[in-house]
Design a protein around this nucleic acid. Structure first.
Length: 498
DNA sequence: TGATAGC
């Protein structure tokens, strides 16, 4: 069924393209075979609109990735600072990046053209004087490529010391980003190192030697520690990236750690460029992030934002299922998700606590269902193993806490189940809108089809769900009978998964 | 009975 989801765009363009299709079908602007040829005659007629956003000009006549299911079809609002003019890049060649890096993009990543966020943000990142950037873009739209390419192209391969640093909220995300960096940078000779807590076995050896790798990707605690013990020199850093930046700078998130890293770097290399990427920036954190960037780093900064109403991915169909009580949630998982979900690809079931993750796992195992579970209390080795098995397709259903809510990229995930809705810990009657959006973004990577089932069992759940619908101004379809196989099947069909 | 990272 991996091929089922390649319907319209893939078949439509296969005819137009003389190039034989590769066996692995990937969607989206990163997919060579899916991208239609340049319009034959770049028309000069009146329908070629040029959108002026600050000093950014987007020539709509050159836009190539205008698929019907384009999750980025909505507006990205650009606010640019200063006089530097930016033109969005329709080809990677326009970015003045090295031939080795281009080869990595085409051969290893199998990209052909920049996605929308890439075409807009990459010129901003790569054009001197290398201004700071706060960038928001949809889940699964190719943000990682933006900052990984940014880091790789700003590093001088001849200089044997750290020049780029990327901070991530979880170890899984750091590892995942490193995998992208290694792939994209394969031909560049650029060196890299993960900044994650060392296990006991190589603890001593790791900490003695200073880091000479040119790109470092890690989690906040370890990076801070490395800076403190002078294992990581920050004086030659040219570029600093925060992935999931809203969370990295949120109260109760990693705010203190992140600020400390930023202050350290400003002190030692004030000309370091800062990139802040996330799919979500609520108003509070947006204001804070802007203030930080303005106060801490003297340079002007550019901004890209998406309206919250336009953040729900159209390719991912959201459902709510009202069940009479907590045990019937498990029934739904057993009888519907485990039975039907298996047919449509991989599934992630999100739960609120580590304990309920374990309970659900046990319950399902008792009935002979094969599931794996990941949560932060597991040791790193087990976490790595479970993620790897899931990414390799060896397991179909993964139960997870919010450790994987953000950034986790596995294209075969077509189904997300919110066993518990995400709520704000400081205000439990309020949904955590950002986490909700990140969770559902695990389905439908790069414009693929996906479905989300939200399980609701009491009035509080129903109210939380309502608030989520209102917030994103997006109605969530109800599956009227929680115990009807037909209705679940129908829901999956309507989501384009069966 | 929040989860994360990291002490």
């Amino acid at each position: 069924m991996a091929d089922n989801d390649s319907t319209s765009t893939a078949t439509a363009t296969a005819a137009a393209s003389p190039i034989p299709k590769s066996p692995e079908v990937r969607r989206w602007a990163d997919e060579p075979d899916d991208v239609p040829e340049e319009p034959e005659a770049p028309s000069t007629s009146s329908d070629t609109a040029t959108a002026e956003l600050g000093s950014l000009s987007i020539d709509e006549s050159k836009k190539v990735n205008n698929f019907l299911d384009d999750p980025e079809d909505s507006n990205i609002q650009a606010v640019t600072a200063g006089e530097t003019p930016y033109t969005s890049a329709m080809r990677f060649e326009e970015l003045n990046i090295s031939p080795e890096l281009l080869k990595g993009l085409y051969v290893e990543m199998k990209f052909e053209r920049p996605s929308k966020i890439q075409s807009i943000s990459l010129p901003m990142i790569l054009t001197p004087p290398f201004k700071n950037l706060i960038a928001q873009a949809h889940n699964g739209s190719g943000k990682t490529t933006c900052f990984v390419l940014g880091m790789l192209s700003r590093v001088d391969p001849k200089l044997p010391y750290p020049q780029a640093l990327c901070i991530c909220p979880t170890r899984e995300l750091a590892i995942q980003n490193m995998e992208v960096l290694l792939k994209m940078g394969k031909f560049t000779g650029i060196t890299s190192e993960l900044g994650l807590p060392a296990d006991k076995a190589n603890y001593r050896s790791t900490y003695k030697t200073p880091v000479t790798a040119q790109v470092i990707i890690g989690t906040p605690g370890t990076i801070n520690k490395w800076i403190a013990i002078k294992r990581l020199a920050t004086s030659n850093l040219k570029i600093l990236v925060f992935d999931e930046a809203d969370h990295m700078l949120a109260e109760g998130g990693f705010k203190e750690d992140s600020l400390r890293i930023m202050r350290d770097i400003v002190k030692s290399s004030s000309r370091c460029q800062v990139l802040l990427f996330s799919a979500t920036f609520n108003d509070t954190v947006k204001a804070f992030v802007s203030k930080i960037v303005k106060d801490l780093f003297v340079q002007e900064y550019n901004q890209l934002f998406v309206k919250k109403e336009e953040l729900s991915l159209d390719s991912v169909k959201q459902y709510k299922v009202k069940v009479p009580n907590e045990p019937s949630k498990i029934m739904v998982i057993k009888d519907k998700i485990m039975e039907l979900g298996q047919k449509v690809g991989q599934t992630i079931i999100f739960v609120r606590t580590r304990r309920s993750a374990g309970m659900l796992h046990e319950e399902l195992s008792k009935y002979g269902y094969e599931v794996t579970t990941i949560q932060g209390a597991l040791n790193q080795e087990d976490r790595d193993k479970i993620v790897k098995e899931f990414k390799d397709g060896m397991t179909q259903v993964l139960i997870s806490t919010d450790v994987l809510a953000r950034g986790f990229d596995q294209s075969q995930v077509n189904l997300v189940v919110n066993f518990d809705l995400p709520i704000r810990h400081d205000f439990p009657s309020e949904p955590d809108y950002e986490v909700y959006l990140h969770r559902i973004g695990r389905a439908g990577r790069f414009g693929r089809k996906g479905a989300v089932f939200n399980l609701l069992c009491d009035n509080r759940d129903a109210m939380i769900m309502e608030k989520i619908e209102r917030h994103f101004n997006h109605y969530v379809t109800e599956v009227p009978s929680w115990d009807s196989d037909e209705q679940f099947e129908d829901a999956l069909k309507k989501a384009g998964l069966m």
